[in-house]
Design a protein around this nucleic acid. Structure first.
Lengths: 189, 189
DNA sequence: GTCTATAGGTCGATAGAC
DNA sequence: GTCTATCGACCTATAGAC
């Protein structure tokens, strides 16, 4: 792995752990094992490097979600698989946490990948829910878009609960609560 | 409002807007209209002042929630009233955002009020849901604790969606999706 | 490509005058 | 109580040698 690559990966880790405001170029360089000169040779500055890191994290989130969404089973099962997927709940969401970073949200370039990621995720999930509804797996009265928004929100908030409690189980509890809300009707039909 | 009070309120605002890492003593003093000497006379330092601010924000959250929980109507209606309560969705949750702050979570004293707030909120909501279930307002198959966790998570995640989209409507959509999931069964019985 | 040197600014805190 | 002066460390970035 060359220096440029190590710098991007180190930035991804630090943005995840400490956010944009809490991450200094010096800390990135230390973790990447690269000097000042190396970093400023490959990137224009902190925002430029952060953009590369955020873009990659957004792509990774999308790829992981898509893998669950195109997995085996019906639409409802694939939604459940996505929600139950193994996650490091105490670390939180590498993209969602950026919404709390004032300097990221104030920079249109840094903000765009965050905005697009959640728009895509919610839309993709809504499509799956609509599919599950058409197949009779889900309650026909549910609005796919609103339900998708609620589920994405529960995932993001599940991280908050896990971190607040210092216990990954808090995330699992929220997800199981959400799935029970979503699927109980089908068990009745 | 004396200097001490202005310092606490300014810190509350800045913690809300920029988080702990993004808030400097100098910025607090500027907003409070107080000097260095004044701040360090009333508080031992940044962590001490932050503790006063966080404690107050946690109390306020609790008071506001309790007001909705003890409002008119059945248990299910009071839960809905809490979720639909007017919120500045783009600003996010003043307590929940602290879970993303590494320096807050690393300090047991600063972390405790955050942890206790979410434990209280989830427990209080679970009690209300159990009450609604006993009254036949909610599906008897729902586990109150898991459902409460899902709802609290949905609120926290709703803020994330609103900030990501730059639109408070994203919060409202998630809430309506969650309420539809919660209450649709009762409409059938 | 990567190094060191340097810059002006801020961070969080302390000291002592008033 | 509040002010100013001062501190060592770190922040983000530029310059120029190698």
């Amino acid at each position: 792995m060359d220096a440029r690559e190590r710098l991007i990966e180190s930035t991804r880790e630090l943005l995840w752990e400490r956010g944009y405001v809490g991450t200094s170029p010096k800390a990135i360089q230390r973790r990447a094992g690269a000097g000042q000169g190396s970093m400023y040779h490959h990137f224009h500055g902190k925002p430029d490097l952060a953009l590369a890191a955020i873009t990659r994290s957004a792509e990774e989130l999308r790829d992981r979600a898509e893998a669950a969404f195109t997995g085996p089973g019906g639409a409802a099962e694939r939604v459940a698989a996505y929600l139950r997927r193994e996650r490091d709940a105490l670390k939180g969401c590498p993209v969602g946490r950026l919404t709390q970073d004032p300097d990221v949200m104030a920079d249109p370039g840094l903000r765009r990948p965050v905005e697009e990621t959640f728009a895509w995720l919610t839309g993709r999930l809504a499509g799956l829910l609509a599919q599950g509804r058409a197949a009779g797996e889900l309650d026909a009265r549910l609005d796919p878009a609103a339900t998708a928004a609620a589920l994405v929100a529960m995932v993001q908030g599940g991280y908050v609960l896990a971190r607040a409690a210092g216990d990954p189980e808090a995330y699992a509890r929220a997800v199981e609560g959400a799935l029970a809300l979503l699927t109980r009707t089908s068990e009745r039909n």
